[in-house]
Amino acid sequence: MDLVLQLLFTGIGIGAVYALVALGFVLIFRATNVVNFAQGEFSMVAAYLMVVCAVDLELPYWLSFIIALAGMAVIGAIFNLGVYYPLRHRTYLPVIIATIGASILMANGVLALYGPQPQVLPGWFETPGIQLGPVYLDSQYLLIIVVTIALVIFNYWFFEHTMIGKKLQATSQDKEMASLLGISVSTMIMVTFIYSAVLGGLAGLLVAPILFVSIQMGSTIALKAFAATIIGGFGDVTGAIIGGLALGIIETFGAAYISVPYKDGFAFLVLVLFLVFRPQGIFGERVAEKA
């Protein structure tokens, strides 16, 4: 039982990380109908910004955190203007290829600027974790879980109860109709990219103290997050969260009880099963409507 609880905690913690990145995927997909393959690199770039501020320049942790997220907002805006906007009237394919190109550019740009050595980023808390009975709770994982819950609530409020959230929803559902109603579609898409980049960055900042800061940190998480979005139902915010958590738990238990080397395999096995038997995902009616 102790074992199960420990595995469950870790599974939820790592699942929450996938969920955060998956959220960024979903928001951009809903707004633009394309998958942003540079979403993982947003996490990586934010983590490096944080290392520069908090470790190299020795700024206070909270200030570095804000600077890194603000930096991601700028990068999100540049990303929209440079990658999505010029191709917005084309089919989804050139845009997807452009996002892949942008991810390669970001990874190698950081490599050129910062070098290949992984970096250490201290966590938010002095105490690494607490022992709760038989279960060890890593404080950074606890933080990640709390932030994920907070974000679910925030997203609900933002999309359902604010004007800008409703405008974003309208844009994602029908761009022509939205623009007829006087909503500036390109502004809404800009907001989406900025928000997704900040979300991706937030995931990167939260996970960096656990996984260290490296060039490939983004791509490994993004691949799982992508699987999580499909399992949850592409385009569904709740689905992304549930999909991420499910994936984290499945792979942790799969590794513990079946095979460690095939840990990544379980995640993708579940993905394949979903693609075969329920391609719209757990919550995904919307995909069929958009396809």
Binding site: Q6, T10, T252, A256
Partner: peptide, 20 residues
């Protein structure tokens, strides 16, 4: 005798296996 795949984000199952 435990193998693991490179770039694993979590080693909890491995550590628990060593413990057991």
């Amino acid at each position: 005798d435990q193998g693991y795949a490179n770039q694993s984000q979590d080693f909890t199952p491995v550590v628990l296996a060593i413990k057991q």
